[in-house]
Amino acid sequence: MEFQFNFSINNAVEDTAGIGKMAPEVVQENESTKHKEVSSEEKQISQKSLSDCSALSQSREVTLPKKPSDPQSAKEHAMPTDVSKVLENKIMGTLPGTHCPDISVVEVAFPDPISSHSDLIPGVYEGGLKIWECTFDLLNYLSEAEIQFGHKLVLDLGCGAGLLGIAALKRNAEEVHFQDYNSSVIEEITLPNVLVNCAHQSDDDGGIIELSLTHCGGKDFNLDMLSKCRLFSGEWSEFTKLLLNSNKPLAKYDIILTSETVYNPDYYEVLHDTLSNLLGPNGCVYLASKAHYFGCGGGILLFTKFIEEKNVFKSRILKVIDKGLKRFIIEMVFKNSL
């Protein structure tokens, strides 16, 4: 099965793995600019390229909301008691070329205007329908560095397909929360992915599996694993309010995983507040990003500068992926953490 990566947001789609396609009104990357922007950050860190992958196949389209006038309200999505409506006739495949070969992904169709015009519609769609390249960078790093999730409360922030949270779940996290801006992404993509990865299913031939009720009956699920998952949608500040104002006391997160979430500088303040409000005192954020996002103006260098000015977190570069436009994995912890 083939999977689609779109390597930058809105005006440019990078082709760093040799399989991308150019979007309308592309902003071309200047070679001298590319190296100048990141030269000061070059560290003696081992570099590893991603395996080539291509288009995520289409099944049925996801309906997106109209642009709201207020921030997208947050809500928790209940786990279904009957999985037939979620998984019936779904097609899934195992992720190729990563350190997480046991993670499966269901296929999804991209609705217009997403498929033909833009990878981002601010206030309507924030990229959750596509599996972005840095997600695979972070998946690889978590495996290479043998990050431990046992007895940890984990948040997959801006989860999209939920692959990072699923990786934590499969590595014995105590509990995993998945959050995405769009409720349609949670219901149509994240939830099915969580369900298929909590099912005892495999394909001995390594091919595509069509999930049916005979394959996905309740007896086939790891119910203990499924009970560890909670799913949320909504804008970050609203999501934070939902958790902090809950009748159930919030146990703050030990680990927050997030990928491709620093593309827009307009979101840095709310992202910073979300991380500082929800991360535990000795918790850690693992964040994956490109050096720069053409068309949006954000990127890892601008975001780390923002962090320094806020003086709440300290950050360090864990890995640089130097293929095409540079990509980074960073770690963030509180300055007063042990």
Results as ranks from 00 to 15, higher is better:
residue 1 M to T: 09
residue 6 N to C: 14
residue 9 I to M: 10
residue 10 N to P: 01
residue 11 N to E: 15
residue 18 G to D: 10
residue 22 M to L: 12
residue 23 A to I: 14
residue 25 E to P: 06
residue 25 E to W: 09
residue 38 V to F: 02
residue 39 S to M: 14
residue 39 S to E: 14
residue 45 I to L: 11
residue 52 D to F: 06
residue 52 D to A: 15
residue 55 A to C: 06
residue 57 S to I: 10
residue 58 Q to Y: 08
residue 58 Q to C: 08
residue 58 Q to E: 11
residue 59 S to I: 14
residue 62 V to R: 02
residue 67 K to N: 15
residue 74 A to D: 00
residue 76 E to I: 01
residue 77 H to L: 06
residue 78 A to K: 03
residue 79 M to I: 01
residue 84 S to I: 04
residue 89 N to F: 06
residue 95 L to V: 13
residue 99 H to I: 04
residue 103 I to M: 03
residue 105 V to A: 12
residue 105 V to T: 06
residue 106 V to C: 13
residue 107 E to I: 08
residue 112 D to W: 11
residue 119 D to W: 03
residue 125 Y to S: 01
residue 127 G to D: 03
residue 128 G to M: 04
residue 128 G to V: 05
residue 132 W to M: 04
residue 136 F to T: 05
residue 137 D to L: 15
residue 142 L to Q: 10
residue 142 L to V: 14
residue 144 E to V: 14
residue 148 Q to W: 07
residue 152 K to T: 02
residue 153 L to C: 11
residue 158 G to L: 03
residue 159 C to K: 03
residue 168 A to W: 00
residue 170 K to R: 03
residue 175 E to L: 04
residue 175 E to G: 05
residue 178 F to N: 00
residue 180 D to L: 09
residue 183 S to H: 05
residue 184 S to C: 09
residue 186 I to Q: 00
residue 187 E to S: 10
residue 191 L to P: 01
residue 191 L to M: 07
residue 196 V to Q: 01
residue 199 A to P: 07
residue 199 A to N: 12
residue 204 D to C: 06
residue 206 G to Q: 05
residue 207 G to L: 11
residue 208 I to G: 04
residue 210 E to D: 02
residue 213 L to V: 10
residue 216 C to P: 04
residue 218 G to K: 11
residue 220 D to G: 10
residue 223 L to D: 03
residue 224 D to I: 12
residue 225 M to H: 08
residue 226 L to N: 02
residue 234 G to D: 01
residue 238 E to W: 05
residue 245 N to A: 15
residue 248 K to M: 05
residue 248 K to V: 10
residue 252 K to M: 10
residue 253 Y to F: 15
residue 254 D to C: 07
residue 258 T to L: 12
residue 263 Y to N: 01
residue 267 Y to R: 15
residue 268 Y to E: 11
residue 270 V to G: 03
residue 270 V to F: 09
residue 272 H to N: 09
residue 272 H to I: 11
residue 274 T to M: 09
residue 275 L to S: 08
residue 279 L to M: 10
residue 281 P to W: 15
residue 284 C to A: 12
residue 284 C to T: 15
residue 288 A to V: 08
residue 290 K to F: 00
residue 291 A to T: 02
residue 294 F to L: 13
residue 301 L to V: 04
residue 303 F to H: 00
residue 304 T to I: 03
residue 304 T to R: 01
residue 306 F to P: 02
residue 308 E to T: 09
residue 309 E to A: 15
residue 310 K to L: 13
residue 315 S to P: 05
residue 318 L to R: 14
residue 318 L to V: 15
residue 325 L to I: 04
residue 329 I to W: 05
residue 335 K to S: 13
residue 336 N to G: 08
